[in-house]
Design a protein around this nucleic acid. Structure first.
Length: 557
RNA sequence: GCGCCCGUAGAUCAAUUGGAUAGAUCAUCUGUCUACGGAACAGAAGGUUGGAGGUUCGAAUCCUCCCGGGCGCACCA
């Protein structure tokens, strides 16, 4: 990892500049950044610009003085074998160039660590619960869920890779009013099928799947007449509906390669007894009061806009109530951080959840709610509007059937989670050959076929001593390989898997450029072997990244 | 009305969180294979970063005010 050199140089700068300019009492943060442009070196420092005020001189002049001090004492430092040169560029950047010999140690690390290359211990084993999808079992998963699924799964993988103890969790909302409506919807459709004249309820779920479910339900229950149907208990419809739809959801997620560690059910973790327990607890703490026959939570004590009703005047609970219990359940299970991934229509919900977290004695940052913006599906150039109630939407299943899991996952991850996503189904299908996911996978497949060729030619890639590499395309590729864990750290910092997607696309680009310019298998046996080694290192990093994103690694395409 | 998110090339999006000449892809135009996989590579063209002020060595990024879009503001879930 190049970040190793980065911190070494930062340390060196602090001590060297501190000694050379001893009269300066307070230094701004001395930090290096990785410049985008290779002409600006491997690391860049802006300390001269930030010191302009203290020194009362133009930044370039200061930078030059700093450069002098840095190079003067370099011979006494172990870094003299690492740093090739130090340059000053307008408006006052100090740029560091590494020796090629130091740069290629990245490749040695890749071969040492293999499928753990890039992994970190930053997380220190802290426990994170990341809850996502958690769609109500009232219909098939939509593409909004699909995007949340791709994000949650990939982010969970990344966090685990950098040292967190991650639990991926799905919360099954198998209680509440929407389940009553589901049961009623099935019953009404069954009545219709049996020829009864009924008015399908306005709030009922109108998707065609309800009709199919009604048919299946009657088949299983042996119902042929309206009389038989009327004898069936209301709860039977609900139980059947939830079980059927949860099976469907599990299957869709499995086919999307999204795996959950824990499935929590509202009926289990937030039953009446647990709710009463929680209400008693909040009551003792003085966070509750009664008004207009309802029981209120003083969420305004914790930064919410208004207080929230927990128990309605009719004695039933609001949606929030079991949710608070569920979050208490998560904290009680020992998670340091609880992450919820929600859609943008729920962002108004965040303050009351945070308030609840604080009320139960946690820090409000222990709960981290990520809002994943919606994806709009375009079909035939037209946006498809979405409404579960009207049964009008594109489902994850349809997308999977049309473009497959790899393309779907990539598309859902190809933007920042806070950016609205346009997903053109026709484009994803029709122009799949120009899809970026193929571009990345193609790089991987190329490396594989190259290895097959190398075996024929009797070339074996070394795992160290890459002294023949030096072309621009080679060095740029190596430099990028050295930044893999930086991309992962950035994902954590942003709570978004997107930076990894971006990293992999860039990696594929650099590999293709390298491949185009540097012929790997040639008459020069030594150079061939070393270039093959570089290609293999790129292959390992590509594979590591693709695994984290849940995208397959085809050996041929 | 209040709150959150967004506004960047013709289109879809980047920009290492305040850095160097604002970059990719698609579409348009032009090149590169007796070749390890052409699903590739190189190049041209395309911009007042919605607008106006401000902060500083330096702003697409931060602050204020406008303009335009999305979402949310229940004893619904």
């Amino acid at each position: 990892m190049l970040s190793q050199y980065k911190s070494e140089i930062e340390q060196y700068l602090k001590s060297t500049l501190g000694a050379a300019f001893a009269d300066v009492k307070e230094w701004p943060a001395i930090e290096l950044e990785v410049p985008a442009d290779k002409n600006h070196g491997h690391f860049s420092c802006n300390i001269a610009m930030r010191s302009a005020k203290t020194f009362r001189k133009p930044p370039v002049v200061i930078a030059e003085e700093f450069r002098q001090a840095i190079t003067d004492s370099l011979s006494e430092s172990s870094l003299q074998n690492v740093i090739d040169k130090v340059e000053v560029k307008n408006p006052g950047f100090i740029n560091f160039f590494l020796k090629t010999g130091s740069l290629v140690t990245v490749l040695e690390q890749v071969f040492e660590q293999r499928d753990r290359y890039g992994s970190l211990t930053d997380g220190k084993g802290r426990k994170i619960c990341i809850e996502f999808v958690s769609a109500n079992p009232t219909g098939p998963l939509s593409i909004a869920h699909a995007r949340q699924a791709a994000v949650g799964d990939a982010l969970g993988n990344i966090l685990a890779y950098i040292g967190f103890d991650v639990t991926k969790e799905y919360y099954v909302n198998d209680g509440g009013n929407q389940i009553n409506i589901l049961g009623r919807s099935i019953r009404f459709r069954a009545q219709e099928i049996l020829g009864e004249d009924v008015d399908f309820p306005e709030e009922g779920y109108q998707g065609d799947y309800i009709r199919d479910m009604a048919r299946l339900f009657m088949e299983r229950e042996g119902v042929d007449t309206p009389e038989q149907l009327h004898k069936i208990d209301e709860d039977k419809f609900k139980e059947f509906g939830v079980a059927f739809l949860m099976d469907m959801i599990r299957q869709d997620l499995a086919d999307f390669h999204v795996a959950f560690d824990v499935w929590s059910h509202e009926s289990v973790v937030a039953g009446r007894d647990k709710i009463e327990e929680m209400i008693a607890y909040l009551g003792e703490k003085g966070f509750l009061y009664e008004k207009d026959g309802a029981l209120w939570f003083k969420s305004t004590d914790f930064d919410d806009d208004k207080d929230r009703v927990l128990e309605k005047s009719d004695g039933t609970y609001t949606y929030l109530t079991p949710d608070i219990v569920y979050h208490k359940n998560k904290f009680d299970r020992g998670f340091d951080t609880v992450v919820d991934i929600l859609g943008p229509d729920h962002h108004g919900y965040i303050p009351r959840l945070k308030a609840a977290a604080e009320a139960m004695g946690r820090d409000r940052d222990d709960l981290n709610v990520l809002i994943v913006q919606l994806a709009t599906i375009f079909r035939d150039g037209q946006a498809v509007s979405m409404s579960t109630r009207r049964g009008q939407y594109v489902s994850l299943r349809e997308v999977l059937d049309e473009v497959g899991s790899d393309v779907a996952r990539y598309f859902f991850l190809m933007r920042h989670i806070k950016a609205h996503l346009e997903f053109d189904l026709e484009l994803a299908k029709k122009e799949s050959s120009e899809n970026p996911v193929y571009y990345i996978q193609y790089a991987y497949a190329r490396i594989n076929s190259m290895n097959a060729k190398a075996v024929e030619a009797g070339i074996t890639a070394p795992h160290n001593g890459f002294d023949r590499l030096g072309a621009d395309e080679e060095l740029e590729l190596i430099r990028h390989l050295g930044g893999f864990s930086d991309a992962l750290q950035y994902c954590h910092q942003q709570w978004d898997p997107y930076p990894l997607v971006s990293y992999l696309l860039e990696l594929a680009t650099r590999f293709h450029k390298f491949y185009d310019v540097c012929r790997v298998i040639s008459d020069d046996a030594e150079l061939s072997a070393q270039r093959l080694g570089l290609a293999n290192a790129a292959g390992i990093v590509l594979a590591n990244g693709l695994v984290l994103l849940g995208i397959s690694r085809p050996k041929s395409m």
